[in-house]
Design a protein around this nucleic acid. Structure first.
Lengths: 350, 350
DNA sequence: TTTAAAAATGAACACGTGTTCACTGTTTTG
DNA sequence: CAAAACAGTGAACACGTGTTCATTTTTAAA
């Protein structure tokens, strides 16, 4: 393990020590060429002795593709977002890639970001926030870089999308609220919401219209001024000020739901006694005792798996038709919209 | 904007179009060489016309250093961790670097991770989780890669550390609990805690011993079986089962505090009426209405700034002595340990 | 045993950039 | 005005790898 050499140990050093050509070293570490077991062993021994490791920059320069995958994120303070990132990191690393993570605020930032991704010759791009700008995408497919968007959709050829099953989610939520006897139902979203939030609202509205027309007639759509916990809380305050009442409410995401619930509590009303509430995402926070929020659960692990599957399959064949992967969701019943009214009573007695 | 060329546009293409040598192009895009304004303009015009962008892999290969900074994270489901990552990403991007993020579970994973970082010739490594293995660090300083650890410390030469002021935090917390009239004080941490958690506990203990010996005498140290919300909750259950009582408690992090508070609530006890509680971190969740937890606030932005300052200064001069940056903390008073008992009463009357 | 096929090997090239070095033309200095 | 200092330029090299292409060695078939 002598490391007297000033610079890094290169494949040539390994070749010299093993008494073979540098090409043999290269072939040993790539599944490409064919090497005799004898030389392979010699090379591996020499490499271990010198502590040789491939220079990924040189490798990427040669192959015109690095072992990097670019990930665009935003608002990591939202627990669901960081949960999703965690899932993506795991999948990326499990396949031997490295994640190039960029947080992005507005559209032009996203453009500069994707441009940097191409400069690193990434093997794929995952966009979890913002709409991939079409001209940038063209640049990506020019470099043969697969792109996948999560929880959004746009009719961009050669770009795959994977998103949760918002329609089934809406069905489950509507069904549950109706079954619980809710009469005046509300839908809570925020201004300038994401594609996912808007889609969930549309699906919820359509489901109600199709199955419970009288509920659909008086469906209350609440639009918070901002996203997140504070948005939900202020929406509740606003609603209370206007004297508006609902007894069942479905929310575009978990933070909005928690905020709305707390906002109502500030006015002395709580679920499930005064109203029922169902959120989206199912972050760890929604399961905590102070909330015990019923939610539509998104499967971040499955989402991450499918995203990487899209990237890998498209890396094989870039001419594939656009795919839209719909990830199943499930309804998690907790305190804010319990299984049945019986269990509520039991809980209150206890 | 003709892009009929199959491969990427290279500096040679720009040089050909501008009628200059490729060296001139290179000099135009690096602050290194000297170029006449005339040729610079010609080059920039040609570059814009062709949509030229530097190949970072080739650049990194040549400079033996890429525009990447490796970041080691763990347990992003902890809001404080993702908050810290968010701060780091912002600082990294603001300086023109890109973040190579890796989530890591155990020690040998961390080793493989740092090894991959060196393979990409990163400009720096930020470790927010786990103890940097010494032999790997040697490899880093051999490549002249600066390393900085966050919220931990070890006597490793050439490695800087930046962590929050746990001593002042302990003083503020102790002072506040004493001032509020707490008699039997507790300290909550979890088994196999981080360096930060342990240090906070030691500091709290020492502060009590120095300033309030009678409180130190009966200081109750609670050790949860696991980290996070569930750890804190179960610790509260356990404490209740054992008939143990405290009226003031200081917690190693925010999730433990929230969990403990909820665990106590499950037994009908709540802050600030039955006990006072002060957490650590000050994540968004602790500010929410259902918790309104008083906490010692960590300044993630300042932490991130100093971490990158350490990296950049050590990149300039690798022989600098080891530095330990202590980031100021502050006490945020909320409901679970209010300003004064008067305000509590007011709040209860209201 | 002879011949054809297959496997293994090393030399050479390509990837795209930064930087040194020698050289030319221009400006400043004494 | 001569000499010296200086900004600008292009040719050439280095960075470390993957891969092609002849060439040699080994194996399989006849």
């Amino acid at each position: 393990m002598k490391s007297t050499k000033q610079s890094a140990v290169t494949a040539q050093d390994v070749a010299d020590l093993a008494g073979v050509s540098r090409a043999a070293v290269s072939r040993t570490f790539t599944k490409n060429g064919s090497v005799s077991t004898e030389t392979r062993e010699k090379v591996e021994k020499a490499a271990a002795q010198l502590g040789y490791q491939i220079n990924f920059l040189a490798q990427g320069l040669n192959r015109k593709r690095s072992m990097l995958i670019g990930v665009v994120v935003a608002r990591l303070s939202d627990p669901f977002r960081s949960q999703l990132l965690e899932g993506l990191l795991n999948e990326i690393q499990a396949r031997g890639y490295q994640a190039l993570v960029t947080e992005v605020g507005n559209a032009e930032e996203l453009e500069a970001t994707i441009r940097r991704f191409t400069q690193f010759r990434v093997s794929g791009v995952i966009v979890t926030s913002g709409q991939p700008p079409i001209d940038l995408i063209k640049e990506c497919i020019h470099f043969n870089i697969p792109v996948v968007g999560i929880n959004r959709y746009a009719a961009i050829p050669n770009v795959d999308f994977v998103c949760s099953d918002n329609v089934t989610g809406a069905q489950l939520a509507a069904q549950q609220l109706i079954k619980s006897g809710c009469k005046s139902i509300g839908w809570l979203n925020y201004q300038y919401s994401t594609w996912g939030g808007i889609t969930r609202g549309e699906a919820f509205s359509q489901v109600l219209q199709a199955t419970e027309p009288w509920c659909y007639q008086q469906l209350v759509t609440i639009c918070a001024q901002e996203d997140g916990y504070e948005g939900g809380r202020k929406a509740a305050h606003e609603m209370h000020k206007n004297g508006l009442k609902v007894d069942g409410i479905y929310c575009a995401n978990a933070l909005l739901a928690c905020g709305f619930l707390d906002g109502m509590r500030e006015h002395g009303m709580d679920a499930p006694n005064d109203f029922h509430i169902i959120g989206f995402d199912d972050t760890p926070q929604t399961a905590q005792y102070s909330y015990r929020l019923s939610t539509i659960r998104q499967d971040v692990i499955e989402t991450a798996k499918r995203a990487l599957w899209c990237l890998e399959s498209r890396a094989q064949d870039a001419s594939l038709l656009q795919r839209l992967e719909v990830v199943p969701v499930s309804l998690v019943l907790r305190n804010t919209s319990p299984e049945s009214s019986y269990s509520v009573t039991q809980l209150k007695d206890k």
